[in-house]
Write a protein that binds this DNA or RNA. Sequence first.
DNA 1: ACCTGAACACCGTTCAAGT
DNA 2: ACCTGAACACCGTTCAAGT
Lengths: 228, 228
Amino acid sequence: LIVPVLASPSMAGRSPLARKVQHKEADRYHYGELRRALIDAALAIVGREGLEALSLRAVARRVGVSPTATYNHFRDKASLLGAAAEVGVRELDRQLREAAGGVRGPGERLEAIGLAYVMFAIAHPTHFRLLGAPELGDKNAQPELLGAYEAAYGVLLDAVKECQAAGVVRTGEPRTLALAAWCTVHGAAWLIVDGQVCVAGIASKPESLARDVVRALFKGLSARNERA
Amino acid sequence: LIVPVLASPSMAGRSPLARKVQHKEADRYHYGELRRALIDAALAIVGREGLEALSLRAVARRVGVSPTATYNHFRDKASLLGAAAEVGVRELDRQLREAAGGVRGPGERLEAIGLAYVMFAIAHPTHFRLLGAPELGDKNAQPELLGAYEAAYGVLLDAVKECQAAGVVRTGEPRTLALAAWCTVHGAAWLIVDGQVCVAGIASKPESLARDVVRALFKGLSARNERA
DNA sequence: ACCTGAACACCGTTCAAGT
DNA sequence: ACCTGAACACCGTTCAAGT
């Protein structure tokens, strides 16, 4: 469960000057490269020092560029964080698909996806926090980020449809069922990274909570499911 | 669904000077009163201007006191926000109990509690966001806040136990089932206030999402529950 | 087109000083 | 015991200026 793009020190991390490309005669970034370097630096800061350490100035500092240089590539701080969050969501998406690919049965696949969602949050708590941070601002202003979320949701939705076709998930609007599943794993993930759950003695270990919650999602609470 | 303590302009809001009590000869707050005024001001700011406008200095400004005066009553900003969040959690707790009290059958009661949880987030999105904000810092440093969360979880837990006794919820560790329910409604609430859901066209209206998710929680996804 | 540096209005926190 | 005011090191953002 190692995530290079999130966990590694990122190419533009340690010695930014060494990574600058010779742009004609000047010592500058190619177009688009500084943008990417800023995003990588933001992800590195979140991963190492946490979300509260993620300031626009700190990002610029890490890349070795003036704070105001960022405004050539991002409208504002929320836009920069949004771009970083988008990378995070795409990585989450990738891990969900990877988890789905490792399993044959459609029911087990759906379960694996739900588990992978919570496990991503456990493995990368600070990154996961960024994905739903208030600092991202209005989501309508970040269509790409919204699209990334939709794609990740699509993994869940497809799995639900497969399960219905195979007869392991009950009938019903697939979008509604997938949404319920998303809410459950998202809620579990958030309660875990927020520390509202394990520290209060409500749940024991994050991993077992993840398992329990996904199983309950399938089985439901109703006693009418008892002798199924 | 009106919440006086959260929605009203709070006593210490408009004219702070008028609310100061005559403390012997000086024009100061009684012990404990400034603390409460700061908390009220914090809640008022969150409700009116959002979480991002909630600074320690803004709170002090609203009460009409020096920024440094807050340090006599709170260790730091996280501690002040934590105290405000605690009030919010207790209000949520109150609304869950109120929703539970309005219903007779145990199954309907549990459903009403889950619905009330999501409805609270819909009615007070900025306050709900405060309850899980990264700015609160480490939850271990805020035992009262943790206790408030536990109490709210207790409402859910008691309802689950009642349901099991009445035979409308299946057998199983009640803490685990209640936790799964909490994850689901919390996830739904968070996705709604975060704007990840309705704006992306994934769900239609927040209220119907809340209903659908709570019903799915009971029924479960498994096809083995189909003909129950 | 892209970057710098100075500037502005903020912010959390510490510290010395007042009563 | 409780509050103020000055100070420090930050922050996001704007703007004029450089190439």
